[in-house]
Amino acid sequence: MKLLNSKLNLKEKHVPKFLCGVAVAGIMGLTGCFSDSSTQEYVEEQQVVDYTQGVITSVEETEKDLFKITDETIVPTKEESRIIASYLDGAIDTFTLAEVELVDAEGDDSRRSSGLRRAVTGGILGYYMGRSFSSPTNPGVYKNTAAYNKSNTANTSLRSSAKTTTVRKPATGKSGYGGGKSTKSYGG
């Protein structure tokens, strides 16, 4: 349908991975998940945050394997997010969120990698990983006060663009009604 976008906006959820720039699950693809009128029992409630904007995080290796954030700039979409890392030897690396996730999936736990991770997740990227909006960024991961103050402004922008959805788990839920009835229209 060109009329409108009826597909689910893929929700980003709090997955304990280094970064999860990649969307998780869509409703439309779930055909067949339910058996007829199955009963399920659940209890919890949680917040799922969908960030519409992205962030470019610049980090600098200030001592061997120790990184500090020098700048965070909000960009219009999540896909434009980048991490720009400047190393002691003068080299520079740029990661997209997808690349970072790939590295993480391959289990790179070198000291340099975990140093980089500690810095960027202490900043705004931490919100993408599940840090609650109510907890602030960590001043210790910023190179200086100016960078930290800028992060607060960026944070406000990110927050205003984010959509928060409460995900509840029904205590008892049933589904599977009306299956196999799609052969005719039920309008009039």
């Binding site: 929700k11 959820k13 008892t172 839920g173």
Partner: peptide
């Protein structure tokens, strides 16, 4: 057929 109904909690869509 994919909508979840609960007499205690209401109407739900399963997202994951």
């Amino acid at each position: 057929e994919h909508v979840v109904f609960s007499a205690e909690d209401g109407i739900f869509a399963r997202v994951g």
